[in-house]
């Protein structure tokens, strides 16, 4: 199988691929191909698991038209890191019952994984994870965004996310009063 590997593809992929050849090839919206462990893909993405089970995986690259190459590279990177890093019993069992499990704090490597992303890349990755039904990756990326908002004032949030204040002064005061209730603690 000839695969034009994506530029930033992680070392780990190669190792996994060589070890069992049990991989699937994914194609980004801009036509780049990425290889990812079938086991990890099926475990981490409900959509890919469905496609694998349903036999709709294309050996020449399964089209994922909604995902750009940068986001797909991050998805694949995440799958590979996940597959390699900690297949601990706890994690495996938690991923099975993930839907019902309470939110679990990101692991150290997951933190590093999202910390290095630009805002745009982070948002694109959230959308890709949402599209692919990747619970854990969604939690990790969304948790990162919520941390960027946490404890911040509206002004600070505007600054961090580059959002324009389009309220008038009067509206702003009105809505401030209207939404102050959550801060009247016991």
């Amino acid at each position: 199988m000839e695969v034009d590997k994506g530029k930033g593809e992680a070392e780990e992929t190669r190792k996994v691929a060589e070890a069992d050849r049990d991989t699937v090839t994914l194609k980004s919206s801009d036509g780049k191909l990425f290889e990812v462990s079938k086991e990890a893909a099926a475990r981490l993405s409900t959509v890919l698991a469905g496609m694998i089970a349903g036999g709709s995986i294309d050996d020449n690259g399964t089209d994922l038209k909604q995902i750009g190459s940068e986001a797909l590279e991050n998805v694949v990177d995440y799958c590979n890191k996940h597959a390699n890093s900690i297949p601990s019993a706890a994690l495996i069992s938690s991923s099975i019952s993930f839907n019902t499990a309470p939110f679990k704090e990101p692991e150290e490597w997951e933190r590093k994984f999202v910390d290095r992303l630009s805002h745009d890349a982070l948002f694109d990755l959230v959308e890709a994870a949402n599209f692919l039904g990747m619970e854990r990756l969604l939690d990790v990326t969304c948790h990162k965004i919520s941390e960027m908002m946490k404890g911040k004032s509206p002004d600070q949030i505007r600054e961090v996310f580059n959002i324009k204040n389009d309220y008038t002064k009067e509206e702003l005061e009105e809505i401030r009063q209207e939404l102050a209730w959550a801060f009247y603690d016991d």
Binding site: I157, R158, I163, D166, L172, I175, L179, A180, A182, F183
Partner: peptide, 13 residues
């Protein structure tokens, strides 16, 4: 709820 109240004050959108 606190984060929600804050975020609604950021912009109309």
């Amino acid at each position: 709820p606190k984060a929600l109240c804050t975020v609604a004050r950021v912009s109309r959108r």
